[in-house]
Computed example of a mutant assay.
Amino acid sequence: MVPKLRIAVVGGGIGGLAAALALTRKDHRVRVFEQAPELRESGVGMHLGPNGSRLLERWGLGERLRALGVRPTGMEVRDWAHGTTLVRQPMGDEWLAEFGAPYYTIHRADLHTMLAESLPSGVVRPGHRLERFTETGSGVRLEFAGGVRAEADVLIGADGAHSVVRRTLAGPDTAVFSGQSAFRGIVARDQVPALPGDTLLVWAGADARMLVYPVRGGEFLTFVAVVPDPRWRLESWTASGELDELAARFDGWNLDVKSLVAAVRETRRWALYDREPLARWSSGAVTLLGDAAHPMLPHHGQGVSQAVEDAAVLAHCLDAPSDAPSTPAGRRRIAAVLEAYEGARRPHTTRVQLGSRGGGSQRLRPDEDGGESTGTMSSLVQDVSWIQRHDAEAALPRIP
Rank of each mutant, 00 (worst) to 15 (best):
A20F: 00
A20S: 08
A20Q: 02
A20W: 00
A20R: 01
L21F: 03
A22F: 12
A22Q: 08
A22M: 05
L23D: 08
L23V: 11
L23Q: 06
T24C: 09
T24I: 10
T24L: 03
T24D: 06
R25D: 07
K26E: 14
K26C: 13
D27T: 14
D27W: 13
H28G: 09
H28F: 13
H28A: 08
H28R: 08
H28I: 03
R29F: 05
V30G: 03
R31L: 00
R31K: 06
F33R: 04
F33E: 09
F33M: 07
E34D: 15
E34I: 13
E34K: 07
Q35L: 14
Q35I: 14
Q35H: 14
Q35G: 10
Q35V: 12
Q35T: 13
Q35P: 09
A36Q: 15
A36F: 10
A36L: 12
A36C: 10
A36M: 14
P37C: 10
P37R: 12
E38N: 04
L39F: 08
L39W: 04
L39K: 03
R40N: 06
E41N: 04
E41P: 09
S42Y: 11
S42Q: 13
G43W: 02
G43I: 11
G43S: 08
V44R: 01
V44T: 13
V44M: 09
G45L: 03
M46D: 05
M46N: 06
M46T: 15
M46A: 11
H47Y: 15
H47V: 14
H47I: 12
L48A: 07
L48M: 07
L48Y: 04
G49M: 11
G49T: 15
G49S: 15
G49F: 05
P50I: 07
P50R: 07
P50H: 07
P50T: 13
N51I: 09
N51E: 06
N51D: 07
N51F: 05
G52V: 12
G52L: 09
G52T: 14
G52M: 08
S53V: 03
S53W: 06
S53Y: 09
S53P: 14
S53I: 04
S53L: 11
S53Q: 05
S53T: 15
S53F: 02
R54G: 00
R54P: 01
R54V: 05
R54M: 04
L55G: 08
L56S: 04
L56T: 12
L56Y: 09
L56V: 10
E57R: 15
E57T: 10
E57S: 14
R58K: 15
R58L: 05
R58C: 05
R58H: 10
R58W: 13
W59T: 02
W59K: 05
W59V: 00
L61A: 00
G62M: 05
E63Q: 12
E63K: 11
R64N: 03
R64I: 03
L65K: 00
L65F: 03
R66Q: 01
R66P: 01
A67E: 15
A67D: 11
A67C: 09
L68W: 01
L68C: 03
L68N: 02
G69T: 13
G69M: 02
G69V: 04
G69Y: 06
V70Q: 01
V70A: 00
V70T: 09
V70C: 06
R71H: 13
R71Q: 13
R71T: 10
R71M: 12
R71G: 09
P72F: 07
P72W: 06
P72L: 05
P72M: 08
P72Y: 11
